[in-house]
Design a protein around this nucleic acid. Structure first.
Lengths: 254, 254
DNA sequence: CGGTGAATTGAAGACGCTCAATACACGTGG
DNA sequence: CCACGTGTATTGAGCGTCTTCAATTCACCG
C-alpha cells in the first residue's frame, strides 16, 4: 500500500536539518515527556543536546543490566519492558513503558544499569546524554523541576506495584494492571477501554507475580463475567467501573 | 538527673548559633546523606537552608498520605516506616528508613505525599524546604548530582523489593530482608550481624507480603537451623554466608 | 498442510493463610 | 514482690489460592 504525503510548503522547508532530526516541539509526546512546560526557546536548547534517535527492533536490547550508564532514553514510539535477572537466571519484569516515558533513571546512582530494557515491538527512542542534561539543569530550572517530577513519579509507580504484589489477590492484581494500562493509553489520546496488549501472557504473569496459567484463567473468568472481550492480545474492557472497583478492592472477584 | 557539660573554649564559642542548630559537618551521617562530597563552604550553604531539626516521638507521624508537600526530611537519628493505605483501610509498608536516608521524594511529582511516614522509635529529622533546595541546585552541581543519585537509589531499592515480592518464596524473602538490614547497619559503622529489630513481626510480615505467623515460624526455623540467635527483637546472625546464599537463591531453605 | 510457539484448560499438590489456643514480655497497681 | 492485664509472639491444625505438571487447542507462518 502506498500513500501520497502532501509536500510541505516554503516556510516549513526552511527548517534546518538538525531540527528535523530531533525536535521535541514536533514530537507528539512533548506534553508528557521531559520537555513538558518548556517554551520554544528552551525546548530547542534541549533538542540541541539530544544525541540522535535510535531504533530498537522488537526483542532488541536498549541496554543490559550492568552496562555503564551515560544516557537516558525517552520513548518516542513503541513499548518496552524492563527487568532484572536474579542469580538463578530467571527474570523479574519491573515495568512496561510506553511512548513519552523515560528509561534509565535507575542507573544514575551506580552509574550502571540496574535492569535491562527490551523492546516489545519495533520502537524508537531519543538518546539524552546525562551529563549534558545536567549542564542544562543549571540553566533551565523548569526542566530540572520536571525531571524531578518524572523521577518521583517512577518512585510512586513502583510503590503502587509493591502494594499490588504485597497485598492483592490474583484477580485484583490483574484488574489493576488492565485499568492502569487503559489510563496510560487515555493520557496519550487513545481509548482507555480498547487496546492491544504488547506483552505476552507470560510477561504479564511475571510482572504481576503470577504464572502464565493464572493469567490465562483470569482472562477466561473476566470474559465469562462480562468484564472483557478478549481476542488474542486485543482487549476490550466492557465494564471499566467494575474493573476499577475490583482493583480498589471494593468489589470481590468471586 | 543533671549532667555537667564541659564548657567549650574560645574558638569553639565563636561558632555562630545557627551553625550549631543544624550543621551537616557536625552530623555523623554527612557522608551518607545529602551533603555527601560537598566542601565545607557548600555544606554551610546547605546548612543555611535547612529549616530546623524536628523530633518525632515513637509512633508519631512525620507526614501523612495526601499531605501537601513542601519539604524533604533527612533522618538524623532513629528509624521510620513508610506505608500506603488502600481503599479497604489496610496498610502496605513500602520501606523502613534509618539515619542518613531521605524521606519524601515520592511526593515531588504530585506535590502531595503518596505515603505516610511514622517513627518506629523516638527520632530526629532535618527539614529541607524543597524549593530552597532547588535554588541551591543551580549553584552547587555536586549537590544536584548527589540528589539525583539518592532518588535513583530509591528507584533501585524499590525494584529490588519488586523482585523480592514478585518471585521469592517466604524464606528467601526473610533472608534477603535480614541481610539487607545488616548491610545498611554496616554502612553506618555498626555490626552487620548483630542488631535490634526496630519493627514488629507484623510490620516485617506486612513489608514482605507475609503474615506475622509466617515471620514467627521463619524465625523459629532459622534459629533451629543455626542461622540466627533470636531474643525478642535482638538478632544475631550466626551464618551470614548461608543467609546470603538463601537470599540469592543459591541455597534452598528446606 | 504440517510445524512451532503461545495460550487454554484440567487435575493434583504445595505453600502460606486463617483461625484458634497458648506462651511470653512488660507495665501497672495492689 | 507478685497478681493481673494487655499487647505481642509462638505454635498447631485445617483450608484455600495459586502453582505445577500435563494434555490439548489455537494462531501464525513457511
Amino acid at each position: 500500500m502506498t500513500v501520497s504525503i502532501p509536500v510541505p510548503k516554503a516556510d516549513v522547508l526552511t527548517v534546518p536539518i538538525p531540527a528535523l532530526r530531533a525536535s521535541c516541539a514536533a514530537c507528539s509526546m512533548h506534553q508528557l515527556c521531559l520537555p513538558m512546560g518548556l517554551d520554544s526557546n528552551d525546548m530547542s536548547r534541549l533538542d540541541a543536546i539530544i544525541g540522535r534517535r535510535r531504533k530498537v527492533a522488537r526483542d532488541g536490547h536498549l541496554y543490559r543490566m550492568g552496562d555503564p550508564f551515560t544516557t537516558l532514553y525517552a520513548i518516542r514510539l513503541g513499548h518496552f519492558k524492563t527487568f532484572q535477572i536474579n542469580v538463578g537466571g530467571e527474570q523479574q519484569i519491573t515495568g512496561f513503558q510506553m511512548a513519552g516515558e523515560l528509561l534509565g533513571m535507575d542507573a544514575i546512582s551506580a552509574e550502571r544499569h540496574h535492569c535491562s530494557a527490551v523492546a516489545l515491538e519495533d520502537s524508537e527512542v531519543c538518546e539524552i546524554p546525562f551529563t549534558r542534561l545536567e549542564d542544562l539543569f543549571g540553566q533551565i530550572p523548569t526542566l530540572l523541576h520536571h525531571f524531578h517530577r518524572m523521577m518521583s513519579q517512577e518512585i510512586t509507580r513502583e510503590q503502587s506495584v509493591m502494594l499490588l504484589l504485597g497485598n492483592m489477590r490474583a484477580g485484583q492484581r490483574f484488574a489493576a494492571f488492565l485499568v492502569n494500562l487503559g489510563a496510560r493509553y487515555a493520557a496519550r489520546g487513545y481509548s482507555a477501554s480498547s487496546f492491544q496488549l504488547r506483552m505476552s501472557r507470560e510477561e504479564i504473569g511475571n510482572y504481576l507475580g503470577l504464572t502464565i496459567e493464572s493469567i490465562s484463567r483470569l482472562l477466561s473468568r473476566f470474559k465469562k463475567q462480562g468484564l472483557l472481550r478478549v481476542s488474542n492480545r486485543e482487549i476490550e474492557i466492557l465494564d471499566l467501573d467494575r474493573l476499577k472497583a475490583m482493583a480498589a478492592g471494593t468489589e470481590t472477584c468471586d
